[in-house]
Each structure stands twice: as structure tokens, then as C-alpha cells.
Design a protein around this nucleic acid. Structure first.
Length: 815
RNA sequence: GCGGAUAUGGCGGAAUUGGCAGACGCACUAGAUUUAGGAUCUAGCGGGAAACCGUGGGGGUUCAAGUCCCUUUAUCCGCACCA
């Protein structure tokens, strides 16, 4: 029977019945945790991206399995999220119903892929058995002072009376009703990830992660060394601190700027300026986050009427508000040095503020203002002449002595806002009591279950706060009537610990058993999209470190080794999208070619970490390749009893076949380990070509040919698992090929008797010579120089030098 | 604006990290076979009559450069008034 969809089904059934992929909980010395980022169960079918991620990570883990590793390879679903809720608003179908239906479809399709998942360890984040522990972790963080509440703005649509996600805000307008979106402050929960900023940075160098990703995390954390400098407000007891990395320019301050949202603004603004400031603040509030962060936008600001006192010179400097200063970063205020900062220069020019040079460039440097590089101080009292670097130290030292400043490290990283004003997420397990305040729900009352009967129509209140039986409860502390928190948790919270739940997914006593988790974790290979480089990966690292410090686990990092797959584009080279009409539907191809052909094309057609454009011609080629393997194997089997075909010699043809066989084993092992699946398949194609070539020999060495075919099937098995099982059976085997040992190459077979070398004259290849493989440099040089063809290139010239590169070439330098 | 990446035949992509550029495959061409084939098998296939020229462009280092250095261009991605 030739390879097709029915072969897939045959082996999927056998695998399931024989529990082939069951994880061995006892053999932990060679454990290997291979994990792909789990996926959101969307209504559509599995797309090419899922296949590319899951299918090929599975190929990698299948090779590891055959190499003797006890592979733990679970799968699950990141099942909470906005799309299900939007779908409910549109169709009236409950998120729970649509989500579980989607999960069922996806699970079936994942099984049809033929991946070696052990489904006994599945985790679904919207199961109460799962989010019970998400809530428990929230409470652990709360009890360890890593979760706290503060005000933070949300996108608010005044017409829909609802909170919008960033993606629902289009050009500052609500995507549903086009009203202007404004910002509204709500009290929300935060996780104190900044507490771990330094450790998150320090552990990066030792991770086997793409350098690009480490760089993204480094930039995201954004450590910067500088100073805090205190300013007093004139005629007031108010004071504020600014953070700066350029304390050397402190004598160049000509004004200071507060973020419009800064608490101090109300206190210091003068009556004459109040109206202007209020108007400006209203304007800033209307501007969307995106607008405000745009570089092309003209800088604006308003004078508050108040003055601050320069901490060193005692001079008065104006206090402005401007939206280029962000409330959430640093201290929310900056000192402005127009002479040495582009933004301040632009602002000062526009509003006619002083520009004071305090840094000179070294000689021969063009230091026209604004001059933003380091240099030497001027106009800076006793610090004149110091280099910028030395001045930063000296100036802050003096400020520190006078108690008006200090050296300070800040991070760009902000605390993680986890409150979402939505229904389809894990409820935040706290109760708000009029008497006791915030009261955590006791562990024995977890999970706080999502009520099913809720109304989704957006009318100003979130579905949970409208649900009486959910929202009204008794205070766990005093028993009096109290209200539950009506917000749910960011889905990134759910996905920050799922890799810990998989190995112990049925534990009803704990989130996971510490001893067990310490044996199976960390994840040895994590595979998923580069779009998660900053947020998900950072959050998961934070969770691991926080849980470690609470004593629930003993390792520092969740993911030791990380690979990002590339993106498969449409055949037009554009990103796949329904509107472009260039999407590829895996199901159609699987129906036509079988899942192994689809998977193998994904392996062969692209550099894994790059991705690239889809090609229908490419998948046809793989279909032919599979047929080619099948035919040669069937031919061998049918010829087994034809004695006249068989000999036993080990001549040139046999050595050549054996060479290719061993070279293929070596290359595929190496390349697959590195996720270089395209070259792995290329080598296997070469092996098949070599087998075809050898097949035309009159008297074939049957033992060698049989062994080579067996190796071929094993080598292809990770990429075409169903097909390989079928071929394994065809040659007469009765057990699974996945219980076989991965082949190892024989170094002796790779040593050739005679090798070909290129002969170059002045670096240009002119001809080739054959020498015996053990020839020394002198022999090689003589053979090359004495070759009859050499004369044409040496005539009338002198041989200056001869360079022999063993196994590669000879370069003869002539003059 | 800052940061990162990429650039190789008609196409997807290789190149052991400084050592024969174009592996493998597609497309194309020719032959064989078949009642037929969009099947199969075999062979050819960067450009150029050739000398030679060829890894986005220009320069350099080296016996030797796709690979290292300088410079420049284009495309893509990430981040962003981060003080």
C-alpha cells in the first residue's frame, strides 16, 4: 500500500493502543523536557504556523527519543482570552462552550499530525483545576509582597462604556463605534517584576538562547546608571526628584519638566497658569498612548508658573509640564538641559528657554549645540575641566554629601499590570470588604469559579460585576457582606507557569509537587515564536524565580535552551492573511498527500529559524521523494529471494554506498540537533540517490544494502513517522521503529582511499588531482607541481610558495 | 531616531566558519520507458565562443574572502520622546 492518509490513521491507532509515547516516570537520569509554546484554541483549524512549530519540534524530540532520551513532550491550551469573549458578544455563544469545542477540534488535529505528545499530561488554562492554582500563585505573590494595587490608566470608550485593549483602539478611536478613546484611571493589580530586574539581566548570558532574544530582553529591562537629584519648589515645602544619566550637565539646567499626570502638578501650579495647565492635561488625556509616543509629533508643554531651585547654583528654574515626559518612567520628571539633549533643545527653542553650554568637545570635535556626547565641563564652577565621566561621579558625590542627590540605577522595565476588566479569564481571588479592605480568598475556598450565567453586552460594567451571585459574598475575615474583585487576570499569568503544571497536571493537592518538579524541570528545549521574546519569556522567568524564592522549586531558569521558528509566508512572499487570499490550509494538503509529506516539506523547504514563502511545487517534490523511497524498498523486498542478484564483495561500489550511508548518519544527527532540518533532508535525499545508484550493480551485497535501508528508515523516521513505521513493517519488522536505536556513524567508513584535491594557481582553481588519502604534504605538493597541466601556468614564472590544505586544495603561488 | 537582522543562479535554499561558491530540491532541456501521463528512470543545467567573470555596490587585509575590516545601498523586523 503506498503512503497516504490511511497509513497515517493506521499508525496513529497503533501508537495510541500501544501507549508508545507514554512518559516513563521512573527513568529520570536521561529525562529530556521538550516543550513548544502552547496555543490559543481559535475557531479556525490548525494553521501552517502550528505545524511548523509543533511538527518540527516533534521531529527533533523523536530523534532525541531514539538516541535514548526519556522525552517528556506534553501539550495543552492557552484557553482564556479576548477573542472568545468578543465572539460571545457577537454571536451569543458562551466563551466556555466555544472554547471547549475549539479545543476538541484542535486536539484531534494535533493527533492527526502524528506528534509524539503524551496527552496524559495535558493542561488547559481555563479548567477550574488549572486556574485554581493560577489563583493560588497570585495569592502567594500577594503574601510575599510581590502583588500590589495602584492606579493605572486604561483605554476607555465613553460611548460603549467599556475598557478597550490596545488592539481595539484604532487611531485613537474605538474600533466598534469610532468614538474618541480617553484614558481613565482605575485601581489595578500589579506584579512586582521590577524586584527581579537585575537577576533577570544577570542570568541571561548563561542561557542557550538566540543572541537576538537576549538582546531584546536586555533592552526591555533597560538598566541605566545615573543619579537622583532633588529639587525644591520655590516658596513651598514641595520637592521632587529627577533621574538623570547626565549629572555632568547639571549646570546646564534651564528648566525642569513634570509629566502632566504627576501628582505634584496640582500642588504647585499658580492660579494664573491653572487654566492653561488643566486644558493641556485634558488634551494629553485625549491623545492615545500611540500618539503620545510618536516621534514625529511636535513637542508641546505648558509653564506651571512655579519655579524650582537649582540644587547647586540656587538659581530659579521654570517648572513646565510636557507630555514627552512619561509618568510611568523614572520619577516622572526630568531636568532639561537644552544644550546637551535633542528633545530639550527642540523644546527650549520652541518656547524660548535658556540654552546654556556646559560641555565642550575635545579638540577638533564639532561640538555645535545641541552637543550630546561626552566632553569636558565648562561653566560648571569647581567642576570645570573635568571629563564628563569624572564629573558625573564628582557632582553626585557632592550632592550626596549635601543630601540632595544620590547615585542610582533605574530600569526601563515596569511592574506588570495583571488586572483585566473582562470575563473570560481567571478571577482575581480577593474580596473587598468595607471593614477589612483587601482580603485574600483562603486557599481552601479556591478556585474562585467563573460563573456561567453572565451577560456579555457591553454597557459600562464588566460581566462579572453585573453578576450578583458572583460579586456578592461574605468577607472571609469578618463574615460581613463584601464584594469580590470583578477583574480577571491577564492571560500571560496563566502561561507563565504551565510548564510547571504539565508534569504534575493531575495533582489536586498542590499546583505541583516540589520534588517531582525539581527532577523534571527545567525545560531542556523550548520552541516557539520570536514575538514572545520580551513579554511571555520574561514573565515566565520572573514566575520561576519568585516561586524559587518562596521555596516551591529549586532552579533559577525555566527554559535552558530556546529556538524560535521562522514565519511561513504565502506563496506571494507576503504574510499570510485572509484578506490577501494567500493562506495555506494544512488540511487540504494532508488530505491529498498525508501528514508526513506536509511535515517533511516544512522541514525541507525552509531554513527553520528563517521561514519563507510557501511553494506548491515544493510539496509535490517531497511527495515524489516519499514515493521514490517506497519503490526502492519494495524492490529490495521483492528481490530478496532472487539469489542470482546477490554477492558479498566489498568493492568500490560498496565502499561508496557505505561512505554515503555513514556520511548521512553523521550529517543528519548533527544538523537535526541544530534544528537544521532542511539540510538533514537534503542528506537523506543524497543517501536515497546513492541507493538507487547502487541498485544497478550486477551482484549486490545484500547485507550492506539491507543495513543501509534500515538506517535510511531510522533517519527519516523523525520527519515522516507514519511512513517510516510502514516501511519498517514492509521490510519485515514487527516492533516500532521508534524503539530502535538512532544509528551511529562509523568513522572508518568515512576515510577514503583516494581523495581529490583542487590545484590553484594564485588562488584560482585550474585543475584537480587525485592523491592517496594518507599522502603527506610533500607528496601532495610534488603531485600538484609535477602534473603535466602545471606547465601552462608556471612557464616563465617562479614558484614562490606552495600551500597545501589537507583534504581540500593546493595553492601554488607563482610570480 | 535607536537597535537588530538579511542581501548568494529563473526560484526555495547550501557552503565543515578564511580553503574547489551554488549541496539538495524546484523549474527547465535531452534521452529511455510506457497505450497514455502533470508517472518513472538516466543525464545536463550560474554567465560567457573563449580567455575569463561571478555571492547588493565600492574599497581593503590575505597565498586564499559569500565568510574578516572600512564604506555605501536596499529590504525586513523589533523598540521607542526611557531622561
Amino acid at each position: 500500500m503506498s503512503y497516504s492518509r490511511s497509513i497515517d490513521k493506521k499508525w496513529q491507532k497503533i501508537w495510541e493502543e500501544s501507549k508508545l509515547y507514554e512518559f516513563d516516570r521512573d527513568r529520570l537520569d536521561k529525562k529530556l523536557y521538550c516543550l513548544e509554546m502552547f496555543s490559543y484554541p481559535s475557531g479556525a483549524n490548525l494553521h501552517v504556523g502550528h505545524w511548523y512549530n509543533f511538527g518540527l519540534a516533534d521531529s527533533w524530540s523523536r530523534m532525541k527519543r531514539m538516541q535514548g532520551y526519556n522525552v517528556f513532550h506534553p501539550q495543552g491550551f492557552d484557553a482564556f482570552g479576548l477573542p472568545a469573549e468578543n465572539f460571545a458578544i457577537k454571536t451569543g455563544i458562551h466563551p466556555k462552550d466555544s472554547t471547549y469545542k475549539n479545543i476538541e477540534t484542535m486536539r484531534r488535529q494535533l493527533k492527526e499530525m502524528g506528534a509524539s505528545f503524551d496527552w496524559d499530561y495535558e493542561a488547559i488554562t481555563c479548567d477550574p483545576e488549572y486556574y485554581k492554582w493560577t489563583q493560588w500563585i497570585f495569592l502567594q505573590l500577594y503574601k510575599n509582597k510581590l502583588a500590589y494595587r495602584k492606579n493605572a490608566p486604561v483605554n476607555w470608550c465613553p460611548s460603549c462604556k467599556t475598557v478597550l485593549a490596545n488592539e481595539q483602539v484604532v487611531d485613537g478611536e474605538c474600533e466598534r463605534c469610532n468614538s474618541d478613546v480617553i484614558k481613565k484611571n482605575l485601581t489595578q493589580w500589579f506584579f512586582k517584576i521590577t524586584e527581579y530586574a537585575q537577576e533577570l539581566l544577570d542570568c541571561l548570558p548563561d542561557l542557550d538562547w538566540p543572541e537576538k532574544t537576549k538582546k531584546i530582553q536586555t533592552n526591555w529591562i533597560g538598566r541605566s546608571e545615573g543619579a537622583l537629584i532633588e529639587f525644591k519648589v520655590e516658596n513651598s515645602d514641595a520637592k521632587f526628584e529627577v533621574f538623570t544619566t547626565r549629572a555632568d550637565t547639571v549646570y546646564g539646567i534651564s528648566y525642569v519638566v513634570l509629566a502632566p499626570e504627576h501628582d505634584l502638578v496640582d500642588k504647585i501650579v499658580t492660579p494664573g497658569q491653572r487654566e492653561a495647565v488643566e486644558e493641556y492635561r485634558a488634551q494629553v488625556n485625549k491623545a492615545s498612548e500611540i500618539d503620545r509616543l510618536s516621534t514625529t509629533r511636535e513637542k508641546t508643554g505648558v509653564f506651571t508658573g512655579a519655579y524650582a531651585i537649582h540644587p547647586l547654583t540656587g538659581k530659579r528654574v521654570q517648572i513646565w509640564v510636557a507630555d514627552y515626559v512619561l509618568a510611568g518612567y523614572g520619577t516622572g520628571c526630568v531636568m532639561a538641559v537644552p544644550a546637551h539633549d535633542y528633545r530639550d533643545y527642540e523644546f527650549a527653542t520652541k518656547y524660548n528657554l535658556d540654552i546654556i553650554r556646559v560641555i565642550k568637545g575635545a579638540e577638533e570635535t564639532d561640538d555645535t549645540l545641541p552637543f550630546v556626547e561626552d566632553g569636558f565641563l565648562t561653566n560648571s564652577e569647581e567642576f570645570d575641566g573635568l571629563s564628563s565621566g569624572k564629573a558625573r561621579q564628582a557632582i553626585v558625590d557632592r550632592l550626596a554629601k549635601e543630601d540632595r542627590g544620590e547615585h542610582k540605577v533605574t530600569y526601563r522595565l515596569r511592574d506588570w499590570l495583571v488586572s483585566r476588566q473582562r470575563y473570560w479569564g481567571a478571577p482575581i481571588p480577593v474580596v473587598h470588604c468595607p471593614d477589612c479592605g483587601v482580603v485574600p480568598v483562603p486557599d481552601d475556598q479556591l478556585p474562585v469559579e467563573l460563573p456561567y450565567n453572565v451577560v456579555f453586552t457591553p454597557d459600562g460594567e464588566s460581566p462579572l460585576s453585573k453578576c450578583e451571585e458572583f460579586i456578592n459574598t461574605a468577607c472571609p475575615a469578618c463574615g460581613k457582606p463584601a464584594k469580590r474583585d470583578s477583574d480577571t487576570l491577564d492571560t500571560f499569568v496563566c502561561s507563565s507557569w504551565y510548564y510547571l503544571r504539565y508534569p504534575d497536571n493531575k495533582n489536586s493537592e498542590k499546583a505541583f509537587d516540589t520534588d517531582w518538579i525539581n527532577k523534571i524541570l527545567p525545560v531542556d528545549k523550548y520552541v516557539g515564536g520570536a514575538e514572545h521574546a520580551a513579554m511571555h519569556l520574561l514573565y515566565a522567568r520572573f514566575f520561576t524565580k519568585a516561586l524559587r524564592d518562596m521555596g516551591y522549586l529549586n532552579f533559577d531558569e525555566p527554559f535552558l535552551s530556546l529556538v524560535h521558528q521562522g514565519i511561513i509566508l504565502g506563496s506571494d512572499g507576503q504574510k499570510m492573511s485572509k484578506s490577501r487570499g494567500n493562506t495555506v490550509t494544512p488540511d487540504d494538503y494532508i488530505e491529498k498527500y498525508g501528514s508526513d509529506v506536509f511535515r517533511m516539506y516544512l522541514a525541507f523547504g525552509f531554513a527553520y529559524i528563517e521561514g519563507g514563502p510557501w511553494s506548491d511545487e515544493g510539496i509535490k517534490a517531497i511527495d515524489r521523494f516519499v514515493g521514490r523511497i517506497e519503490r526502492i524498498i519494495q524492490k529490495l523486498v521483492s528481490e530478496r529471494d532472487l539469489a542470482h542478484l546477490w554477492g558479498s564483495g566489498m568493492g568500490t561500489d560498496e565502499k561508496e554506498l557505505n561512505y554515503v550511508r555513514n556520511y548521512t548518519i553523521k550529517s543528519v544527527t548533527h544538523d537535526t540537533e541544530q534544528f537544521q532540518f532542511n539540510t538533514s533532508i537534503a542528506r537523506i535525499m543524497e543517501l536515497v540517490n546513492a541507493i538507487y545508484k547502487y541498485d544497478s550493480v550486477k551482484k549486490k551485497n545484500r547485507g550492506l544494502l539491507e543495513d543501509t535501508i534500515e538506517d535510511l528508515i531510522k533517519l527519516i523516521a523523525p520527519f515522516a513517522p507514519h511512513f517510516a513505521e510502514e516501511m519498517w513493517e514492509t521490510i519485515g519488522k514487527t516492533t516500532s521503529v521508534f524503539n530502535e536505536q538512532w544509528p551511529e556513524h562509523d568513522e572508518k567508513a568515512l576515510v577514503k582511499d583516494e581523495i581529490e584535491l583542487a590545484v590553484q594557481f594564485n588562488g584560482q582553481v585550474k585543475y584537480k588531482i587525485n592523491v592517496s588519502a594518507d599522502a603527506d604534504n610533500k607528496e601532495i605538493e610534488d603531485t600538484a607541481v609535477n602534473d603535466p597541466r602545471a606547465g601552462a601556468y608556471t612557464e616563465g614564472k617562479n614558484i614562490v610558495k606552495v600551500i597545501v590544505v589537507k583534504g581540500r586544495l593546493v595553492n601554488i603561488v607563482v610570480k
